[in-house]
Amino acid sequence: MTTDTAPVPTTEPTRPTVAVRHLLAQIGRYTFLCAILGFFALPLLWLATAPFDDTPTVTASLPRFTLDNFRALLDNPYALSSLLNSVYLAAGTAALVVTFAALAAYALSRVRVPGRDALLYGLLLLSSIVTGTATMVPLFELAFRLNLIDSRLGVILILSGGLLPAAIFILKDFMDSTPTSYEESARVFGASPLQIMRHIVVPLVRPGLATVGVWAVANVWGNFLVPFLLLRGPDKAPAAVIMYTLYTEGGQADLRLLSTFSLLYSLPVALMFVFVSSRYGFRFHGGIKR
C-alpha cells in the first residue's frame, strides 16, 4: 500500500489515533486470552455441571439439578471400590518411588561414581520407554513369568520402575543443593548413615519428596494401560480402567454415569495438590531456606 512506500511523507499520528490503536491492541489481546481460557475452562465447566444434570450432553449447559446420577453411580458395584483401588495403587507406587528415589538420589549425589551423569541421563531417557506402550508386550511377559498377573503388586512394581529414573533425577537436584557440612557435622557427632538420612537429609529435602510423591500419585492415577493389561477382574481395577466400562448396553457412553464418575475421579488428585502445595510448596530448586 502507499503508506508503506518511503517517499510518502508520514505525518505524526495524532494523540487519539495512538489511544485507539492501544485500545484495539488491548481488546485483541484479551479476546485471544479469553479464547484460550475458554478452551481449557469449558471441559472443566462441563465436569462441574454435567454430574448434576438430569440429561447431560457433551455440551456444558445450565443443569436441571438432580443428584440421581450419584445414586445411579453408587448402584454400580465397581465404581466406588475402583477409586479405592486407585488409592492403593497410587499410594503403593508413591511410597516405593519416594523411598527408593530418595536413597538412590542421596547416594548418587554424595558418592563419586565415574559416568554418573551419563547413567542418570540414560536412565531418564529409558524410563519413558519402560512404561510406554512399546514395552507392554515384554512387560506383560515378565509379569506373567513372575506370577504377577492380576496382582496389584505387579502393577505397583512396573509403574514404580517407570517413574523411578525421573524421580531420582528430580531428587538428586534437591540433594545436591543441600550442603554436605550438615551431614559431616552429624557424622562427627557419631550419627550413622541412616540416622543422617532420617534426621538431616529427609527433613531438608521434604519439599522435593512431596513434589515427587504428588507427581507419582498423579501419574498412577491417570495411568490406564498398565492396570488395564495386568489386572483381570473388575474387582481390582482402578478408576481409570472402570471409567472405560461405563457404557450402556447399546455401546453408547453413559454420560450420566461417566460425568459423575469423572468428577469423583478428579477430586482426590486436585485436593491432594492443594493440600501438599499449601503444606510444603512445590519447588524444583533449593530445599534449605524456608
Binding site: 550442603p179 550438615y182 559431616e184 557435622s185 562427627v188 531438608l204 534449605i288
Partner: peptide, 20 residues
C-alpha cells in the same frame, strides 16, 4: 576410626546448624 568414634567435635565454617 570413623569421625563419630574419635571423641572430637567440629564447628564448621558455615556452622552447619540444622535449619529444620
Amino acid at each position: 576410626l570413623p569421625p563419630g568414634k574419635r571423641d572430637v567435635a567440629m564447628v564448621f565454617q558455615d556452622y552447619a546448624l540444622f535449619p529444620h
